[in-house]
Design a protein around this nucleic acid. Structure first.
Length: 229
DNA sequence: GCCCAGGTGGGTA
DNA sequence: TACCCACATGGG
């Protein structure tokens, strides 16, 4: 199975990716991700938003803030049941409470609780370490690296797969790292660019590219969609 | 009531 | 490797 469905040249893919970015930025404006006040809040949000709508995550984050739990130390010390109760609106709250605990344990053990030290680690090394933490998979690890640490990694999510495969640009069944490499091979390696591009794709996904019945007529990218999606 | 949401890990063939 | 499934709340 070739990486690209429609037998495009590398140049054509790069041109298409630039066109999409320019179009979305023009039509939707900068998304200014990640919506959070601190780096640690980005990490907490990245875990809480796993397969969950952002509005539900916001309630959970607000509860954590009210209880002054938005620091590594506070999360490490809070009883599990209290943490579960605080993040309940985000769903999967029992799993996610353990995942938050797992991350702050990792941070303490490897970096003495210091996010600054953690993010000084080379990208590939830190990504590998994050993937060892229970409950942190590739998308969460990359969201942490990019949006909390400003490391230049492209974040792939369900919307990214859906949009690009419906446009016939890549095979949505490819593995996470394959799709990530595809983006990173065709775009300048820039954290601000990766930040904005992923955020724009999520906005497109939320508004126009649902699982069933995409609304391509009003989607800013609709006119560029071709067959073989 | 139904489908969906900014995934992940565990189990099975 | 490639599927299945559980996990859970809240909005449309």
């Amino acid at each position: 199975m070739p990486t690209e469905l429609l037998n495009r040249t590398q140049g054509e893919i790069r041109q298409r990716l630039r066109l999409y970015y320019r179009t979305l930025l023009e039509r939707l404006g900068p998304q200014r991700w990640w919506p959070a006040r601190t780096r640690f809040e980005v990490i907490v949000g990245a875990i809480l938003t796993q397969n969950t709508s952002w509005t539900n995550v916001e309630r959970a984050v607000a509860a954590l803030r009210r209880q002054r739990l938005l620091t590594p130390k506070a999360l490490a010390n809070v009883p599990l049941q209290q943490l579960e109760s605080a993040i309940r609106p985000a769903g999967y709250y029992r799993q996610k409470a353990r995942r938050l605990k797992a991350f702050v344990s990792f941070l303490q053990e490897h970096y003495g609780g210091s996010l600054r030290r953690m993010f000084q680690t080379p990208t590939a090394t830190l990504r590998h370490q994050l993937l060892q933490v229970h409950g942190i998979g590739p998308e969460t690890a990359d969201s942490i690296l990019l949006y909390a640490g400003h490391h230049p990694v492209f974040v792939v999510d369900a919307y990214t797969r859906r949009i690009l495969s419906r446009h016939g640009l890549l095979d949505g069944r490819l593995q996470y790292e394959q799709i990530q490499r595809w983006f990173e091979a065709h775009l300048p390696r820039s954290a601000p660019l990766f930040n904005e591009y992923h955020a724009l794709l999520v906005e497109v996904g939320k508004r126009w590219c649902h699982r069933q019945q995409p609304d391509c007529s009003s989607c800013p990218l609709g006119r560029y969609r071709e067959t073989a999606g």
